[in-house]
Structures are given as C-alpha cells and as structure tokens.
Design a protein around this nucleic acid. Structure first.
Lengths: 176, 176
DNA sequence: GTCTTTGAGTTCGTTCATCGAACCAACAGG
DNA sequence: CCTGTTGGTTCGATGAACGAACTCAAAGAC
C-alpha cells in the first residue's frame, strides 16, 4: 500500500497515517507491541500472521521510526522490536478504535478492560482517567481480561501470558 | 478482508474493528463523511478511489450500520450516505489517527486544525476541549485548513468546498 | 421525439498483495 | 554429528485493487 499507489495527492494527515499504519495486520502488530510482544516468533505465534507479511511490516515500521530494533543478546545474535516514542503515541488511536470495536462489534461487550494503574479506575472514552483527570500514557495503563478467559479460542504461550492483568509495554518475559 | 480470511480467532475488539474499518480506503471514506461528503460522485471526485471499491465499501459500511443510505430526492431517485450514531462514534479514532499523522508524518505539521465550535479553542490530544473540559462531539467540531490552501494539489469541487472552515457533519451543499 | 448529460453504479482484464507451506542459515546443547 | 530454536526468505496459488469502458434510468436541451 505504501509504495507507488499512494493515497491521493491530498494534503491529509489521516491519509499519511494510513499509508504507514493502515495496511492489513499493521495495527495488530502495534497492539501486540503495546501488550509487550517484542519477538518475531511471539508475533507469529500470537497473531497467526504469515511470516513474510510480518517481516515486511516490522521492516516498514522500523524504517518509519515506529519500532526500534534492538539487540538483546549477542550470541546467537537476536533482536527485538520495541515501540519508539512515536509508536507509543499511537496509543490514543489504538485505544479509541479498540473501544469502538468493543462497543459496537462485540456481542458480549469488550473483552479487555483498561485501567489507570496508578489509581485503578477505568479509562474513559477519551483515554483519560476520570479520577486523576488528564490523559494516561500507555505505560501507566493496565489491561485485564474481562471474561473468565473461556472465550479465548487460541492456545499459544503468548496468549496464555496475556490472560492475566498486565501493564502495557512491559516485556512478556517480566512478571506483572 | 472481512470475509473468510478473518483476523485470527482471537477475542479482540481491535481485530473486529479492523475487519470492518481497516480495509484500504474505508477510513478515508469515513473521514470524508465527517467532512460532509454524502454522495457517491463526491466521494469519487474527492478521493480518486476506484468506483468499484467505493461501491463495495459503501455497501459494507451500510450493512454494518456505520452509514445509513437515505433517499434525498424521488425523481430521479437519488440516495446519500450519512454517518449513523455508530459511525459518528468513530470520531475519536479518526481524530487520534489524523493527529498522529499530522504530528509525525507531515513535514509542515498538520494541515487542518480542529477547534471546538462553541468556544473556539483547539481540541487537545484526547479530542477534548481544554476550555470547556470534556469530549467534543463531532457536530461541534470546526475544521479549518491551516495553510493558505496552496499545498492542496487537488482540484475538484469537493476539495474547493473544503478549503474554508467547516463544521463537521454538515452536508456540503449547505454553507458553513 | 431525439440527443445529451448526470448520477450511480457494474464489468472486466491487468496488476499487485496476501497466503501458507517449504526451505534456509546461524548458533546452542547434548 | 544430530537436533532444536530463532528469525527469517522463497515461491506458486489465490484474492483484492486498479482503472478504463460500459450500462441504465431519468432529466433537460433542442
């Protein structure tokens, strides 16, 4: 999508955002990054995304500055992908879309509840904390599944880790 | 995208939202609907979208309840597409993504400024009005181009109408 | 009454993206 | 030396998007 066939010549911020982040799978990769997923194999396991597509998306997001690729062990050399500040600033958009999907497209209501980790109250529609007032950065958000886990039809290690409440952006390897 | 090859079996609100709204062009159609575009030919003129794709997206959004198709004249029979309350609730997501694109992907900064029409102050990052406090519904948002119009490379009637400040959701045929 | 225009699509052949299964390479452990 | 793990790449088959041309119904112009 990004190359060649660009969205119109219009001077539009939304079109430019979608060029980068509007392709199939891309926002789900970013959502997983907020949940703490950082490694290629974990993205594959959790998303069931074709490997070639994942490699393509990770490269594009890294090139654009949404993700940063960093080495976390030397031998064998292994890299992980983490959200940059630019990537973390996608949180309001991800939260708004996710909330909308939970409200209108999920028969049983949203499956995850997002709360302000510092005070415990659930985020409101604008992504702000009604108690403390003001927006909540993603690192202060706690995601917890609403339903007793029964509704998850998946069974991979990443999904199982995400069944408990988790602070956003914490790597999967660390406890809550 | 929506059919058959659905995004994983996961119980995820974001995935469900993207099934409907994450396909190419769809969010741009919705943005145009916020700007007051309602007619097939106006969407085509403003977006340069392939006509078959537009017909497909309008049908899908109408079937899902994001748009409503309503007859605005009997002879010849003509319909227009307007956002339903469900569609209008996409405003926070559209605003957040658009703002992100303006901040990180637009060399000259955002091209449009969104203000609270009732008090005139620009919306903040969460889509709330810093003066009045609280979220601003899209019908109370005024969009105005920031730059002196020179940067628009397009030249169709719809673009020209959108060059002035406009209240969101007002049909293009009405003045501001 | 015929000619043309307008709005709202549909058709269709080409091109591009995605899918998924298999393959590859580098290192680690036994 | 063999096997397992991680992080990819390759490739043929399928599906979606592109865009130019075509359709159709109803007005309007002459």
């Amino acid at each position: 999508m990004a190359l060649g066939k660009d969205y119109e010549g219009q001077d539009c911020s939304l079109a430019r955002a979608l060029e980068l982040v509007g392709e199939r799978w891309t926002l789900l990769v970013i959502r997983d990054a907020f949940y703490g997923v950082r490694r290629y194999s974990d993205f594959v396991a959790h998303l069931d995304i074709p490997r070639a597509v994942l490699a393509d998306r990770l490269a594009a997001l890294t090139a654009a500055g949404v993700l940063e690729r960093r080495r976390y062990q030397q031998s064998p050399p292994r890299d992980e992908y983490v959200l940059t500040p630019m990537g973390r600033d996608l949180w309001p958009a991800v939260h708004a879309l996710s909330r909308w999907g939970g409200r209108y497209l999920s028969p049983d209501g949203p499956s995850k509840l997002y709360t302000h980790a510092l005070c415990g109250s659930p985020l409101d529609q604008a992504g702000t904390c009604p108690e403390c007032g003001g927006p909540v950065p993603p690192e202060d958000v706690e995601a917890r599944p609403v339903r007793p886990t029964a509704c998850d039809r998946r069974d991979d290690p990443v999904t199982r880790l995400l069944e408990g409440p988790r602070r956003l952006l914490r790597p999967l390897t660390e406890p809550v």
